[in-house]
């Protein structure tokens, strides 16, 4: 019986990583579910849901050549393979200001204590080397109102950081 695995590959960014991995999986008779990749600096990572009939060991061996050639770290975990259950975020949180330690921890601690689930998080360090600024965008799902959450977050991070929370209105037509 086919089983689902979460395949994660991490390494130095280079052209052709996705093609090498997915090509090997396709040639080996695997089926892809959802996938997400990110590139930060010169590092690359991809997570993909892979459905495969012949066990974890065979799945790893399918990817061996590509992993070796591209100097990737590979991680394979059996998963439930839950498709068709996307969580739709309803809040968008933007935090930005002069960079300092603890911004992400302070913000996400508030979110966690309120039971908000983070669907998407992205942060950038912008500005200049002398005066770096930190920019964070989060999409989250939770019951708290945008206004209430914004005031709690502003209190948690203190002055010096801009915090905006807005409803992420979804048109369903």
């Amino acid at each position: 019986m086919d089983k689902w695995y979460m395949v994660t590959a991490v390494g130095k960014d280079q052209t052709g990583i996705v093609a090498a991995i997915t090509g090997a999986l396709f040639d080996g008779g695997c089926h892809l579910g959802e996938a997400s990749m990110a590139r930060l600096g010169d590092s690359f990572t991809v997570m993909m849901m892979v459905r495969h009939a012949n066990g974890e060991k065979t799945l790893r061996s399918l990817l061996e050549a590509a992993v070796e050639k591209m100097h990737l770290h590979l991680h394979v975990d059996p998963v439930d393979g839950v498709l068709h259950h996307h969580v739709i975020p309803n809040l968008r949180i933007s935090v930005f200001g002069a960079d300092r330690p603890g911004i992400v921890a302070q913000v996400t601690r508030v979110l966690a204590s309120d039971g908000l689930s983070i669907c998407h998080l992205e942060t950038d360090v912008a500005g200049t080397q002398e005066r770096p600024i930190y920019v964070m965008h989060i999409e989250a799902k939770g019951r708290e109102s945008a206004e209430a959450l914004q005031s709690r977050l502003r209190q948690a991070v203190g002055a010096g950081l801009d915090v905006r929370v807005a409803d992420l209105d979804l048109v369903i037509g």
Partner: peptide
């Protein structure tokens, strides 16, 4: 404007 949409 950019906004999020879904559809039945």
């Amino acid at each position: 404007a950019l906004g999020r949409e879904g559809c039945h």
